[in-house]
Amino acid sequence: MKSIEVKQLSYRYSAETELVLQDVTFSVDAGQWIAIVGHNGSGKSTLTKNLNGLLAPTSGEVVINGTTLTEDSVWDIRKQIGIVFQNPDNQFVGATVEDDVAFGLENRQIPHDEMHRRVKKALSDVGMADFATREPAHLSGGQKQRVALAGIIAMQPAIIILDEATSMLDPKGRSDVLNIVQELQDRLHVTVLSVTHDLEEAALADQILVLDGGRLQATGTPKEIFSQVALIQRAGLTLPFVPQLSEDLKDSGITLPETYLSEEELISALWQLHLKM
């Protein structure tokens, strides 16, 4: 089944301004990890807001798990989508960690005992169980984002959207958050949509959509996308380390059979070359 279908979506903030999104069409299978990449101002965030009805398409439509997004279906659709936003502080609603995780459950009128069970479970899933009664002022950015993830896990959504969720974190915080999401996807088969300008993060995806100037410029697997160096540059992005290294090796006369994503792959390819010589 299709988890997300976006059909000819266009959006403008007001009649006088230019289109921020133009004729964007794509679909995501349930359980897939998809990355939407582009520089700041490419229309990525506007796209996210169109997916859960925070903004209404100027034209085109959004279908989530078979339901078309309308004014009537918006609250039901929001139940199926959990979003982690960019700024760790500005999405922390609760006065303590556990209160924050509970916030969405309270909104959905989950009974008290069930709520306590889910909060506890979700916090241990993100490794924050020991911090349940802490106040946000005493947490790092990475920890706050893990709490935001727990708030989403507790709601058991079908789709998790990471809207630049790691861009304000230090490397440790970033890898913690991404590891948890990867682990969740393996275990629960949720659909993950990560909106990012970090292609290292996008490399984790099954599919990458490249957005520039409000238009979809390319779709493909990470390998397919990373082999198109000109495209990446035009979109204002930079290749992840391993594909970049492969490119630079090519330039200095070392021919590699294909584009590699992981260090291990590239090293063993180099070792093969080394043995042959």
Binding site: L245, D248, L249, I254, W271, L273, H274
Partner: peptide, 24 residues
């Protein structure tokens, strides 16, 4: 670890490229 000889650790990508080209 794989078995390449890495006499001095490169810090920058350009140094790594040099190292690899030299090795190969």
């Amino acid at each position: 670890q794989q078995g390449f000889k890495v006499p001095t650790l490169p810090l920058k990508e350009s140094e790594l490229v040099d190292l690899i080209t030299k090795q190969l």
